[in-house]
Amino acid sequence: MTATSVTTGYVGWVGLVASLALVGMAVAISLWQRLDLERSLVWASVRAIVQLLAVGAVLAVVLSPRVPLAVSWLWVVFMVVFAAETIRRRAPEVPRARPLALASLGLATAVTLLVLFGLGIFPLDARTIVPLAGMVVGNALTSTVVAARRVVAEFSDKRSEVEARLALGLSSRDASRPYVRDALRTAMIPQIEATKAVGLVFLPGAMTGLILAGEKPLQAVLVQAAVMFLILGAVATTSAAMSIGLARQLFTADHRLVRLSRATG
C-alpha cells in the first residue's frame, strides 16, 4: 500500500500522525464494547511517543562517535537498575526483589554480552552495546518477574510439601529443588515457544526493523537469529539466578522455611 515508504524505511511526522489512525481504531473498539480503556489507550500512545523521542534524543548523544564508550556502559547500568525497580513493582510479594533482580539482570547482561563481544559475534561499539543490552534486559525482565512470582506462589501453595521434605531430613536446597525447577520451566517455556514460532508465526522486531531500513533479508535473518539466541541465554541465566537466589532467601541457614505473607501454615 505504501510501497515507496517501505523501500526507504522512512516514517515522517505525517506518517506518524497517520499511524495514530490505528490507535483510533482501538479507541473505537473500546467505545463500542464499553471497555472503558479509551483514556488508557490514548495515555499509553502519548507516553510511548514522548518516551521514545526522549530515548531517541539520548541515544543520538550516546551513539555519537565523539562520545566515549563508557557512556554506553553507563546507559546499560541505568537500564539494569530501572528494570530491577520495575521487577520490584511488578512482583510486590517477592521478598528482597530489588537486590535479587539487580543481581540476576546484572549477571545475565554481563554473561551474554561477554559471549557476544568476546566471541566477536558483534563489534564492540556504542551502536551494538546499547541495543543488544536493551534486548537482554527487556526480555529478561519479563521472565524474571514470572520466575520470582512463581517461586513465591509455589512455596506458599506447597508449603506443607516443602516442610514435609524438610521433615524427612532434606537440606533446604534439596527440599526446594522441585519447586525451583517448576518456576524455572514456567519462566523459560514462553521464550522457547517464541523461538520455535519465529518466522512462521511472527517476524521479530530486530529483523523487521532491519528489513524496513533496507538491509538484505539474509543479513537481517543472521542478526535476528543471533539476537534470539542471546535472548534465550539471557532468559535462562536471569530466571535461574532469580529462582535459586530467591529460594535461598526463603530458608534460614538452619534449613527452616521462613513464613511468607501469603503462607497459611
Binding site: S160, E161, A164, A167, L168, G169, L170
Partner: peptide
C-alpha cells in the same frame, strides 16, 4: 537439624 529430623519424624495434619 538435618540429622535431628531423621531421628524425629513427623506426620502432618493433611496427607502430604
Amino acid at each position: 537439624p538435618l540429622a535431628l529430623r531423621r531421628r524425629v519424624g513427623m506426620v502432618f495434619q493433611r496427607p502430604t
